[in-house]
Write a protein that binds this DNA or RNA. Structure first.
Lengths: 352, 352
DNA sequence: TTGTAGGCGTTATCAG
DNA sequence: CTGATAACGCCTACAA
């Protein structure tokens, strides 16, 4: 470094790098005292503290966070690992996260995953362990590699929107929610009820999942049996929802009602129904899932899923574990609520 | 949960904290050599490097990123500051960011800002300078505090979706895009064209903005004058869009067409139009903005805005600046494209 | 209460 | 090419 280079006079206040030593020298005290004064250590006179703080302020001292993290062994950073497939869902979760973290001075390290192949590769390449104090894993079943990583780092993990082993977490009771949705259709005298859904973990396409179970259970409870041609498991996109609906309408005996595992899929389905000249809800009822921000304006009957809470509660749990490592690991399951709007009505010809 | 079920659990490899010293001792070399071998420094024999790497692997050595950052003065982390208001837009930007960063081993520190008051306060509380190598500021006009912070940290900044001073950045040519949208309506013989829009920077509500200018310019170019009761500046939510539409329909001379500054606002407007028993596009045309994932399935005519590119190009610029600090600061402006679907048609009574 | 010294894990700078 | 050794900025015993 060239210490003699001419200094530019910028219109902004630019502080040269000021360290704790500079403050100590300027304040006429030792660096220990400065450190204590700044970190709220009680073993300092109020007078010295005030003086040190003032000098620090004057010098424009900013503690170097990396040095601090290095020394303390804690980074004050939380890692969020989240697939970014369906916008609405994850954005809501992220909002919940932000909400919970706003009051703290933790910082977020966000790892977004777009492709299944990214999963471990990406996680391994970016050397995150040691850089974060804890991790919130959203909608992702932890792989073995991940679990080892957490074990190595001795860093707490919380799962959001997933239940796995005995790891602490918070998730939606999808099974119960699906039952409520289907029961709503049954109450409207629908008997031919189809399912358009997607795997819970976007990387495990063949995952048998709980909404699917809830759907079948509700049918069984009503004395109906499920039919495979009514069950369409595909991607969580409006496009895939549309394709699934296309297939359902091509069935020899098309359904009179559809329960979709996401509002995105539902919107795709609704578009296809409209294109076929069918009316909603007169000819066909549709129930969505999530209750995205647009749902009220589309008149979509759907399940209101506590997406934000997934994030905020997840972070709260993580913060608790950070605060007290002996916090018992628990798993919380959140309920959803049906919101009836304009896409569901009595089955054609039915009298309620 | 059934605690008695025996799960087949493979033993997890748990590594104690292994440092470069352990590797050095085990490999019978000095720590300098280990460091060089691991960081790709050419001044090592292939043989020693291979040996060191093998020992490191055996010991399960993971370089401590914080120590590395501390020593190198670079963190390999990029900061993203983004308001988390309207879902779709920012998520798309985030995807672009992820896309650009996927090939690198940079990590993302994300700061979301929910309220205007958060702006500087939050930025100040979370001690980020020193923890990141560069910053991408999305949709936020930098405040003086922020600019000072960047100057202090001597860290590069790139603006996305904003143009400000001579800072490097990438943004949408909103003015040109608005002109295209309005011209489309003019071509359909609409003369009473209203605007529902929102500020570009969500924290500067009275910001005169470029879409607004484009709207007026297009009218002027067609020999029309703008009328204040047709210009509704509000929040970027479907709710606000609905309220604005409500007001427009209450005008003594309601518009026959509406250009909305976001698809979210457009969807809210469409709902109100429908509730008033009016048909789209027969009675009223609507053009949205962004082209969100659902837009095709709602039949929404809209402007396709390169949201992803905002993120990916922004990050590319940042990476270039990091790579070579003398990179000339430029500002790129991206074009948008009209996508005509089913919400626009000839003005009532017009013959094309 | 306060100052001093040692250490955190790596990188970088020297001699050899 | 390699091995000591000195930073890096902060925290924290320990001693005064």
């Amino acid at each position: 470094m060239d210490g003699t280079s001419s200094i530019h006079v910028l219109p902004l206040k630019v502080h040269a790098l000021v360290t704790i030593h500079d403050v100590a020298r300027e304040a006429g005290v030792g660096i220990g005292t400065v450190s204590r004064a700044l970190s709220g250590n009680p073993h300092v006179t109020d007078a010295t503290r005030a003086h040190v703080l003032e000098v620090a302020e004057d010098l424009g001292f900013r503690p170097n966070p990396i040095a601090r993290a290095f020394s303390r062994g804690r980074t004050h950073t939380l890692e969020i690992i989240v697939p970014l497939f369906t916008r609405d869902f994850y954005i809501e979760v992220l909002r919940g996260i932000e909400e919970a973290i706003a009051a703290t001075d933790y910082t977020l390290l966000v790892q977004t995953i777009e492709r299944a192949t990214d999963r471990d590769r990406l996680i391994r390449r970016r050397r995150v362990p040691g850089r974060v104090d804890g991790t919130l894993l959203v909608s992702l079943r932890p792989t073995r590699t991940l679990i080892e990583r957490f074990a190595d780092a001795k860093t707490p993990v919380v799962l959001a929107d997933v239940e796995y082993a005995r790891l602490p977490g918070v998730s939606i009771n999808h099974e119960a929610a699906a039952m409520i949705a289907v029961r709503h259709l049954l109450d409207l005298r629908h008997r031919r009820i189809a399912l358009i859904d997607h795997p819970e973990d976007p990387f495990l396409p063949v995952d048998p999942h709980s909404r699917h179970r809830g759907y079948r259970n509700a049918l069984t409870a009503a004395g109906l049996s499920h039919r495979l041609d009514y069950e369409r498991l595909t991607d969580d996109t409006p496009h895939a929802g549309a394709a699934a609906m296309q297939a359902l309408l091509a069935c020899p005996e098309p359904p009179t009602a559809v329960f979709a595992g996401s509002d995105n899929q539902a919107v795709g389905a609704l578009d296809v129904i409209r294109q076929h000249g069918l009316r909603v809800p007169e000819d066909l009822s549709v129930v969505g899932y999530n209750d995205i921000e647009l749902a009220p304006y589309l008149g979509l009957t759907t399940m209101r899923v506590p997406m934000r809470e997934l994030g905020s509660i997840g972070i709260q749990m993580l913060l608790e574990m950070l605060d007290d490592p002996r916090t018992p690991t628990e798993h919380r399951r959140l309920p959803s609520k049906l919101v009836v709007r304009r896409t569901t009505a009595a089955a054609p010809g039915a009298i309620l």
